[in-house]
Amino acid sequence: MLHSLSKSVTKWLLKTGAISHNDVALYEYAVYTFFFSMLPLTVSICLGALLHMFFEALLMILPFVLIRKFSGGFHLKSSRVCFFVSSLFLALSIEFIKLVLTHKSFLFCSILAVISTFIIIILSPIDSDERKLSLAEQKLFKKVSILLSLFFLGIYFILLMLKIWNCAASVGVGIVIPALLQIPCLFRRNKKPTS
Rank of each mutant, 00 (worst) to 15 (best):
S6Y: 00
T10V: 12
K11P: 01
L13A: 10
K15H: 15
T16L: 05
D23P: 02
V24H: 07
L26F: 13
L26H: 12
F34P: 01
M38Q: 13
P40F: 04
L41K: 04
L47F: 05
G48K: 01
L51R: 07
H52E: 12
H52F: 09
F55C: 09
A57W: 01
L58H: 04
L59G: 02
M60Y: 04
M60W: 05
F64L: 07
V65Q: 07
S71A: 14
G73M: 03
F74D: 02
F74I: 05
H75L: 11
C82N: 08
F83E: 04
S86Q: 10
S87M: 10
S87L: 09
L88F: 15
L88N: 09
L90N: 02
A91D: 08
S93K: 01
I94W: 00
L99Y: 13
L99E: 14
L99P: 01
V100S: 01
V100A: 03
T102S: 10
L112H: 03
V114G: 04
F118W: 12
F118Y: 10
I119G: 00
D129G: 12
S134T: 15
S134R: 10
L135A: 14
Q138V: 11
F141H: 11
F141C: 04
V144N: 00
I146E: 08
L150S: 06
G154T: 12
I155A: 09
Y156R: 05
L160E: 08
L160A: 04
K163H: 09
K163W: 07
C167V: 07
V173W: 00
G174T: 07
P178R: 03
P178M: 04
L180S: 08
L181G: 00
L186P: 03
L186I: 15
K191Y: 11
K192C: 10
